[in-house]
């Protein structure tokens, strides 16, 4: 090539490399300060949380031995050698697992219905007034910040032991979590159909029914399915506080050291969650492609 590569003059090079050096130094300093801060926080948190590495190290073999023990039957044989003995309570567990699924289902359904009616009040574009929006948002926040198991603890006292408090607890948490997601979906809609419906004399709920719902339904359904999957996981521990489902058998097995039962129930739960994971993901992909296809 005939073009000579033009070189920067020395004082320019110097100025630029000085700028580079100082920028690099500043970045290194920020990183160092961040690392130091993090280290201090870790030490502080470690003290407060009573982290005892010696104890962890000393007892680490217990985790492996525990994980090992849950895979042995009472008679000292590996669980896989005698499936019938391992899953002796299969019928009972499956029935409890079905309960768990129904708790999650009913909680999700009722919660999604509640979230549907509340979400419009929490949006910027469809709330009647700012006061309504403020209260709707605070209410949804409250519902999703209090963990569902805390609601379950309280409801067990009020409604008595059994799946009823579990369903209500999951429902309330779902209202909060889905209400927020639904509101975000509604805020992203195309407002032209709404304006059209209102210009033609529709009331607020008529406008929502004919102009908003068709736009948001696939997204709403997809989020509700995602929530169902999360709620199945949540419902599996509702039994810990006496709110029904498979959790009751699991905590009993763990507390009373029925080792092989622990592994049997855990595997059942994991398999169920995975199957639901896969199935809901399939349906969600179809729903989302449905929306993009329109």
């Amino acid at each position: 090539m005939a073009h000579a590569v033009p070189r920067l003059q020395d004082h320019q090079v110097e100025a630029l490399s000085a700028a580079y050096r100082s920028a690099q130094l500043a970045k290194r300093r920020t990183t160092l300060v961040g690392v130091l801060l993090l280290a201090v926080l870790i030490l502080l948190a470690g003290r407060v949380a009573e982290v005892d590495l010696a104890k962890l190290w000393g007892n680490a073999h217990q985790l492996t031995s525990y994980l090992g023990r849950i895979f042995y039957l009472e008679n000292g044989k590996l669980v896989f050698t005698d499936i019938a003995d391992w899953y002796w309570g299969l019928g009972r567990w499956l029935s409890r697992l079905w309960d768990t699924l129904l708790i999650a289902y009913l909680g999700t359904l009722l919660g999604a219905i509640g979230a549907f009616f509340l979400c419009f009040a929490a949006t910027v574009n469809l709330a009647v007034n700012p006061a309504q929006r403020f209260f709707a948002r605070r209410f949804l926040e409250f519902c999703r910040t209090v963990p569902e198991i805390v609601f379950a603890l309280i409801f067990v006292v009020a409604f008595g032991l059994g799946p009823v408090p579990g369903v209500i607890a999951i429902m309330i948490h779902t209202v909060g979590a889905l209400g927020k997601l639904f509101a975000e979906v509604v805020e992203n809609i195309d407002m032209k159909p709404v304006e059209g419906a209102i210009a033609a004399g529709a009331t607020r709920w008529q406008a929502i029914r004919y102009a908003v719902v068709p736009q948001v339904l696939p997204n709403f359904a997809s989020y509700a399915l995602l929530r169902f999957e999360i709620n199945v996981r949540g419902a599996s521990v509702m039994g810990f506080v006496g709110a029904g489902g498979i959790g009751q058998d699991l905590i009993e097995a763990i507390r009373k050291f029925y080792y092989s039962d622990v592994s049997a129930i855990l595997l059942l739960i994991i398999a169920t969650v995975m199957i639901i994971d896969v199935v809901t993901e399939r349906i969600r992909h179809r729903l989302i492609s449905l929306e993009h296809g329109r």
Partner: peptide, 25 residues
Amino acid sequence: SDSIRGVDTLIWALIWINVVGLGPF
């Protein structure tokens, strides 16, 4: 990672209590 995710935090807490005893650790 899927099987770890399938188990709720509370269940993991119960299992770890067997290893390091009751308490925040």
